[in-house]
């Protein structure tokens, strides 16, 4: 029962954090939202009994992608511009 509830709540949280990452104009906060999405996604992989994919997603998605995105933001501009 609890597992089914988690299976419903986690994808909703993943979609919410992905939407937040699109809507935010501050790109640094957007990168943090992408990291939160990756962490929730790795939790979902772990619940679906794929621990291999969960470890890879937590390492690459939540840590290294965030580091690369933050370095790219540091090299360019922080705020998104209105077109």
């Amino acid at each position: 029962m609890i597992l089914e509830a988690i299976h419903i709540i986690l994808p909703i949280l993943i979609i919410i954090s992905a939407g937040i990452a699109i809507l935010l104009k501050d790109l640094l906060a957007s990168a943090v939202a992408v990291a939160a999405m990756s962490l929730l996604l790795s939790l979902e992989f772990y619940i679906l009994q794929a621990p291999d994919v969960a470890i890879a997603e937590a390492g690459v998605g939540a840590c290294l992608t965030t580091a690369i995105l933050i370095l790219a933001i540091k090299g360019t501009k922080r705020m998104e511009e209105e077109v």
Partner: peptide, 21 residues
Amino acid sequence: TPGGGFQGGAVVASGLALILV
């Protein structure tokens, strides 16, 4: 156990990136 070369390498590289930052 679950994991392998790619997964463990990603975890170690994450730790090294933490030190770098």
